[in-house]
Design a protein around this nucleic acid. Structure first.
Lengths: 101, 101
DNA sequence: CTGGATCCAATCTGATACTG
DNA sequence: CAGTATCAGATTGGATCCAG
């Protein structure tokens, strides 16, 4: 079931927002957190680790003090762009539809 | 977050399989169950109710003995087709990629 | 700054049994 | 045939506190 495989990678309350955030450029941990209201450090950390395990996100540690960590959407991660686009399009139509009911 | 709205509608272990099954024609409860190995009556029932609540599936009861219930993908449900297509395409590529790692 | 560890509540899913 | 009821286990997400 390849469809399910795809959804599994995106499952989790914050993964899509994280990916979308990284679509617009590399970010540091606290930057992502700032862009996603409501997410806790724990969840951001967990979701990022999931995404990294799936090779969608790369984590780079710069050995400075204080430590700086940068998150990058991998080339592979960028292949999700059309998926997100379609979901966004359908989601918008769906929202309009539901609201008009 | 329209992207999340879309995923919410598809969330649940069996929803996609059910929708895909109904893409190929109307089905009765037991027919769907037969086409989806591993699903229990309870889960099929629950997921169908969810889909119905989102207007993706229509439930029709025929008052015969024994009772016959037919499930139909609504016109609206069919608009998910491109979404499923993109997910399938990406999921296939993803699976190949993961297997080759 | 970037998290990990722990605990907790809510939700999801499954197994089993039962019904009109 | 097409479900519902009940119970139990698994998973998820959040709150809080701690650490290099």
């Amino acid at each position: 079931m390849p469809v399910r495989d795809a959804l599994e990678v995106l499952s989790g309350k914050w993964k899509l927002q994280i990916i979308i955030s990284l679509l617009f450029g590399n970010k540091r941990f606290s930057q992502i957190a700032k862009e996603i209201p409501g997410i806790t450090d724990k969840m951001l950390s967990k979701e990022l680790r999931d995404l990294e395990a799936n090779c969608l996100v790369k984590r780079t540690v710069y050995d400075s003090i204080p430590v700086v960590v940068e998150y990058t959407l991998t080339e592979y991660g960028h292949t999700l762009k059309p998926v997100i686009e379609v979901l966004r399009t359908w989601g918008l139509a769906h929202r309009n539809r539901i609201m008009s009911l």
